[in-house]
C-alpha cells in the first residue's frame, strides 16, 4: 500500500494531498494545469522534496518531514513514464528497455507483451510516438518496480493510439500487483482506468483550502467544479 500525505507551497499554488493506493490499484491524479499534479508525482519519484508530510510504501518510509527522512529516486525502485522524451536517444529500443534490467528474458517478454518486439533493434527516433510510449512503459516495468508512476503518458498521442494504449494499460493493470499513479487531464480517461481519483483544485497560497483526498469511484458520479473530488465505479 502506498500512503501519501504531503504538502508543498509553490509560488502560485499550495499542494496538500492525502491519499493511498493499494497494489493492483490505479489512482488517477487529475486537475487543472498548475494544480500540482506533476509536483506530486515527482515527489513520489524522489525528484522533488515536499515541504512536509510522509510518503510510505508498506513499511518503508520514503519521506518523513518530522524524521527528516528522504530516500533519493535511485533507491525507490520505481517505474516512471513521463509525458514524452523518456527514452535514451543513444540506445536502441531493446537497450532502453534493458537499461536497468539484466534479465534478457524479461526484456523480450515485455517487448512482446507491449507489441514492440519487432522494433527491438531500432533507434528511438525511428519509431512513432505511440511506440515510444510503449517502449517507455516497458522500460519502466523492466526493473520490476514497486510503484508505477505515469505522468500524462498518452497526452502527446493521437486519439486512436491513445485509446489503444489506454486499453492496453487497463489489461496490463490486472497483471501488475503494484500501486499505479496516473496523471491525466482527461476525466474520461481517468474514469476508464482508475480505481480511485484525486482531483486537485487550484489552491492559491492565501486560500489554504482543505486537504484533497482520494475517493473510490462509485456509479452515482457526483461531480462539481467547486469541489472536484468525485465518486464513480
Amino acid at each position: 500500500m502506498l500512503k501519501v500525505h504531503i504538502a508543498k507551497s509553490r509560488p502560485h499554488c499550495v499542494i496538500n494531498v492525502d491519499f493511498q493506493c493499494a497494489g493492483g490499484q490505479l489512482a488517477a491524479l487529475t486537475g487543472p494545469s498548475g494544480a500540482g499534479k506533476t509536483t506530486i508525482i515527482r515527489a513520489l519519484a524522489g525528484l522533488e522534496k515536499p515541504d512536509s508530510g510522509q510518503i510510505r510504501l508498506g513499511n518503508v518510509t520514503w519521506f518523513d518531514s518530522a524524521e527528516k527522512k528522504w530516500v533519493p529516486a535511485r533507491k525507490r525502485k520505481l517505474g516512471y513514464v513521463f509525458q514524452e522524451h523518456t527514452l535514451f536517444p543513444h540506445l536502441t529500443v531493446e537497450k532502453n528497455v534493458a537499461f536497468s534490467c539484466g534479465d534478457e528474458t524479461r526484456v523480450r517478454e515485455l517487448l512482446e507483451i507491449l507489441g514492440i518486439a519487432h522494433l527491438a533493434r531500432k533507434m528511438t527516433h525511428m519509431i512513432s510516438g505511440g511506440e515510444r510510449q510503449r517502449a517507455a512503459l516497458a522500460q519502466a516495468l523492466a526493473s520490476a518496480p514497486r510503484v508505477l508512476l505515469l505522468d500524462e503518458p498518452f497526452s502527446a498521442l493521437d486519439t486512436a493510439t491513445r485509446a489503444r494504449l489506454r486499453e492496453e494499460l487497463k489489461r496490463l493493470k490486472k497483471h501488475l500487483d503494484i500501486p499505479i499513479i496516473f496523471v491525466t487531464h482527461d476525466l474520461a480517461e481517468a474514469r476508464f482506468l482508475a480505481d480511485s481519483m484525486i482531483n486537485l483544485a487550484l489552491q492559491i497560497p492565501a486560500a489554504q483550502q482543505s486537504v484533497q483526498t482520494a475517493e473510490p469511484l462509485s456509479a452515482a458520479s457526483a461531480f462539481s467544479p467547486a469541489h472536484i473530488v468525485f465518486n464513480q465505479t
Binding site: 519519484a45 524522489g46 525528484l47 533519493p72 529516486a73 535511485r74 533507491k75 525507490r76 525502485k77 520505481l78 517505474g79 516512471y80 513521463f82 522524451h85 523518456t86 535514451f88 536517444p89 537499461f99 536497468s100 522500460q139 526493473s143
Partner: peptide, 13 residues
C-alpha cells in the same frame, strides 16, 4: 535533456 538524467536516477543509477 534533464529528464534523461532524472530517468536514469529513477531507474536506479
Amino acid at each position: 535533456d534533464p529528464r534523461l538524467l532524472e530517468m536514469s536516477a529513477v531507474l536506479g543509477l
